[in-house]
Design a protein around this nucleic acid. Sequence first.
DNA 1: TTCGGATGTGTTATCGCTAACTTTTTAACA
DNA 2: TGTTAAAAAGTTAGCGATAACACATCCGAA
Lengths: 343, 343
Amino acid sequence: MSDIATTVGVAPMTVSRVLNQNGYVSEDVRNRVLSVVKELNYRRNGLARSLKRQRTDTIGLVLGDISNPYSTELARAVREAATAKNYNLFICISEHSAQEDIAAFESLTSHSVDGLIVATRANDSGDEYLKSIVENNVPVVAIGRDFYHEQIDYISADNLQGGFEATQHLIDLGHRRIGFIGATLENEAKLKRLQGYLNALEKHRIEIDERLVTGRREVRTGVPGYSTEKIGYEGMKRLLSLPNRPTAIFARNDFTAIGAMTAVKESGLRIPQDVAIIGFDDIPLAVHMSPSLSTVRQPMRLQGQIAAELLLRRIESDEDLLREEKILNCELIIRESTVSLKI
Amino acid sequence: MSDIATTVGVAPMTVSRVLNQNGYVSEDVRNRVLSVVKELNYRRNGLARSLKRQRTDTIGLVLGDISNPYSTELARAVREAATAKNYNLFICISEHSAQEDIAAFESLTSHSVDGLIVATRANDSGDEYLKSIVENNVPVVAIGRDFYHEQIDYISADNLQGGFEATQHLIDLGHRRIGFIGATLENEAKLKRLQGYLNALEKHRIEIDERLVTGRREVRTGVPGYSTEKIGYEGMKRLLSLPNRPTAIFARNDFTAIGAMTAVKESGLRIPQDVAIIGFDDIPLAVHMSPSLSTVRQPMRLQGQIAAELLLRRIESDEDLLREEKILNCELIIRESTVSLKI
DNA sequence: TTCGGATGTGTTATCGCTAACTTTTTAACA
DNA sequence: TGTTAAAAAGTTAGCGATAACACATCCGAA
């Protein structure tokens, strides 16, 4: 920058004023500065700029499984909202562990993002770290991360309601032996979808059979990880081998449901006549499955958009804001995997 | 940092040495520093650190359509390779335009990433900007971006070969009227998959019928954008309405192919008996379609991994390295949408 | 005993930029 | 012609870290 200043014959501050388009600069000097800038292929050092200005105009987003359409829709919405307010968005992936979670927080905060949106699953050490971030006055907003903090806004789909409606739908169809795939009963406290399932059964006085609730046991973390197609496949195999197999399945998410469908098809049983299946998320694949997959759609873009707005509000406000919590309704999508087309 | 130094009664430099674990520090001082660090919930300012050190240990990745499984697999592989060498990864999305492309480059370079991986489609102003980045000594690696520069390594799937084999496969099955959906002939120069299609026809002396090549015309940019399910659907409708409709379709990517399948099903024709369809990419959806979708699989993880390795090599090397170019083979995946199961 | 290297710590000078303040020039008006 | 405010610059002092160098000790080998 001082090179440019010297070349043009002005003070560095004047160059800065030209580049930031603030303060008074004569037309003549502006043009000369700009032409030298172009000539020298100069690019301002953002680190120094941010260091001095104490802000980066950048927000960070931490995603878990990036392959999940849920994550990507979220990212798009967040990006849109951020761009609209002239903020950049940096995305970090934390695929597997609490450790990676923290690494992502660390790398974003050490780059001094102005705020952080977190959409990974809760875990103790990560939560601890988030707390310390907030205490350092970096705003944080959580999406679907089950973690309460007085200064962290919280956005989530209403998984409880969604799980309830999915199960209710199966009950309405006359099913009484309904399985859940994707988690075990010990995860109940942490998993709203599973709670919704249990609530629906309870409401209709259907006894809960723990053999019908199956998923991978999370030994290390105590926290349910993402549920996959493989888990769905294996879970379904297990359920089908029961002496009194379920006639309907609520899968924790669509990937799990798809794995379950594969297992059912292999066994020669028909969907939905022999086994009805409903998933959760309404991923793009769902509508193309054969039979098409009934599921619960959550408003992904809306969650991202609201999260970004709440975060920017915090960033741009000086006061301590009260915690906001938004729980968004889910929508039941009924397709062929629960209701046969034949009349 | 100086707070800590004062509290412990040492110089800031000593605190820095403790935090960076370099230089000599006595056991006693180290412990006292660490305990005060924890007590004050201190977090080092990465901007200042990076400014002084002239590096950030961070690389940037610019993705186009993040919803595309292609992008996400890439991101995961890049992240893995980066993490293995202790680099952070920041991902930026540039969904629609050259302008957003540049905004992403800008935000990453202004944060002084140590290097940049670019996986968006080529466009003139973006290419120009990339050039200036390289001239500022920031290493750049391109994935599947059709842009030649002496100092930018290039990784891509062999789309030419893939397009050729897909078309060859249809020809081998006896098809002679083969449509292409996802681009128009004027994009030939920019689209290797289309070139592969044309080459295969030529090799077998099948006349090219320009009415069989259909896609959205890119008026503004002259560069073909991503092709979508919708484009596939509409393109197929158009082809089916031709007096002499094609008996086979090579779609530019799987999304396009899926849209085409929908159109075919709606028309009452059978896949593959009446119309065979092959796509490109092997997205997770492909295998679950009904009928399952034949396609060409490209090595996504490998591309990401190699890109990261080439980039880190450039970052950590002092010399000017020669340009590397890696073109990776694609694999033909034959499923039910081209070959009927019935014998 | 002396000397040299290992060990432990402090000092100084930036990295590249901009907020805040000061100074000079210009323009406008009474 | 003098007064005043707007316009156009310049000056100073950091932002928060660390590289490079300087300066003490301490210990063991010659």
